[in-house]
Design a protein around this nucleic acid. Structure first.
Lengths: 210, 210
DNA sequence: CTGGAACGGAAAGCTACGTTCCGCTATAGT
DNA sequence: ACTATAGCGGAACGTAGCTTTCCGTTCCAG
């Protein structure tokens, strides 16, 4: 295996680094209000192993949120590189974001801690990429133009709200409803005009402040 | 006005009955974990006014949940009475349920208290009505047949997860996304096959037990 | 052999919530 | 006019659960 020598206190600690992050991601994704103890238990470590790495719960949450944004950004960049069929590129992007499942964490945790500059910068970058992907799909004529970038963000949140059974089942269902959604988004097709104005950026960003 | 004689201790109490229920509905819809004190404050009454009416928080929650189900049932029955255009009847039904906003309360509160037989009976009745409405739309050929009744229930939850700004704005946006959804549901149209099996009834009912 | 990094988990300290309780007010009945 | 009392506001109480600290233990590095 590619695993480094697994004995030694240092190696153990390095493995715990990853173990703790994975556990924290899983636990807080399932329940954003979960206690620290739940993370420790899931990771199979003591509470002190957590506090050795992060000064407080809030710091751990920030780390998780930042990781989520970076994953979001990575998926978006990959989608922008896709020079194939415009619709498939856009649909693949949406499937990728839904699989990344960073919306749940990023959105639900927003407002529970002070955003750092680094976090703000990542959010801006993510937003830029989303805008470009959206614009490209509209310009290619494959995406109905009365749906805005902000709409897409809210639609991601709706997909993230689907939760039923275990993680695998949940993912399966999210893709089921994403397929339904993509049917409605695709152009050309017969569409009714959407009622009400699209969300403003200000409305979305308002949730980032406690 | 149609308001009954507003003086007198009894009249005051009767008005508080309604005031408290309205406040509770609003508060718990916004945050299912809200404290009792928040309800009292919103209603403009003291805490004891609540405890005079309901023995415990759980009882209040049950009452709210039951009211929500009854509203759901009323909307469904009205939809079944609609003998006009099949698609419009179905679409009106969905708009009605989204406006009733009983999914948020009923679903989010499920599992936080012991269900009474009365509550169970209402849930069964609601489920029956939903099945009939769904079946009628499919038989009329206006609803894509690969979407099940359980799918519709989960889609209602997705609409209920939309929350942005005040109540009015939230309702506006829910209708925006419902319109998108209806586009995908309507038949005839060109649709891709949905991936994954539809949710089982057992999966849904599993969330009712703590 | 030993200093200390890393750890497990108990306990401290705190917050927030549900519920109770007490004193007050304004009516209804006489 | 008088009083018994239903209804009420909100302080007080008890508790559950959470974050954070702290201390004894283990095990590698030198």
């Amino acid at each position: 295996m590619t695993t480094p020598p697994m004995s030694g206190r240092k190696a153990q600690a390095a493995r715990n680094d990853e173990l703790i992050l994975q556990a924290a991601r899983a636990v807080f994704t399932a329940d954003p209000g979960a206690p620290i103890a739940a993370v420790a238990e899931r990771a199979g470590v003591g509470i002190s192993a957590l506090y050795r790495r992060y000064p407080s719960k809030e710091d751990l949450l920030r780390k998780l949120c930042l990781d989520g944004l970076h994953l979001y950004i990575a998926v978006s960049e990959k989608a922008l590189d896709d020079q194939g069929d415009p619709w498939e590129a856009f649909a693949g992007y949406m499937r990728g974001i839904v699989d990344a499942d960073s919306s749940s964490l990023t959105i639900k945790l927003a407002g529970t801690f002070q955003p750092t500059p680094e976090l703000g910068a990542a959010a801006v970058r993510a937003s830029e990429l989303a805008t470009r992907i959206h614009a490209r799909a509209v310009e290619a004529g494959v995406l109905r133009p009365d749906v805005t970038t902000a709409d897409i963000a809210l639609l991601f949140e709706q997909m993230a709200s689907v939760k039923l059974g275990d993680d695998e089942r949940t993912g399966q269902l999210r893709h089921r409803y994403l397929a339904l959604l993509l049917d409605a988004l695709r152009r050309p097709a017969s569409h009714a005009a959407l009622p009400g104005p699209a969300p403003e950026d200000a409305e979305l960003s308002a949730r980032w402040v406690p």
